[in-house]
């Protein structure tokens, strides 16, 4: 089959399939705004909406929290504050000081 013949088939198909829409479908489509709510607060009442829109956010926040805890635990200090460490060392130094103290027998009499 040559191009000219094929074009005849294409034209015939095009005209056969180009029909105006029925009044029924036109009416049905035009009443869509009466039947369908346009993205309002009612959307939040549907469970699938929560699954669709909230779940990614919830998962994202949960992962951020986990990452924060993990990084926090890995950081040096293991959660002990600098002030606690100073006190601890200070207490230790005091203990050591008392242990190494030489007593002067004259003082004790």
């Amino acid at each position: 089959m040559n191009d000219k013949e094929l074009d005849m088939f294409l034209r015939a198909y095009q005209s056969e399939t180009d029909q105006p829409p029925s009044q029924q479908i036109l009416d049905s489509i035009l009443t869509v705004p009466d039947r369908i709510t346009q993205g309002s607060w009612l959307l939040y009442l549907r469970p699938w909406h929560w699954l669709d829109s909230m779940m990614p956010k919830v998962v994202g926040w949960a992962m951020t929290c986990c990452l924060g805890i993990y990084v926090g635990l890995l950081s040096p200090g293991g959660g002990e504050s600098a002030m606690d460490e100073e006190y601890y060392l200070y207490d230790q130094a005091q203990v050591l000081l008392f242990e190494d103290m030489d007593f002067d027998p004259r003082e004790t009499g």
Partner: peptide, 18 residues
Amino acid sequence: AEDIMQEAFIRVWKYAAN
């Protein structure tokens, strides 16, 4: 095809706000 057009225009109405 008519059913598809119905669904397509529902999407137009719903999606237009975005």
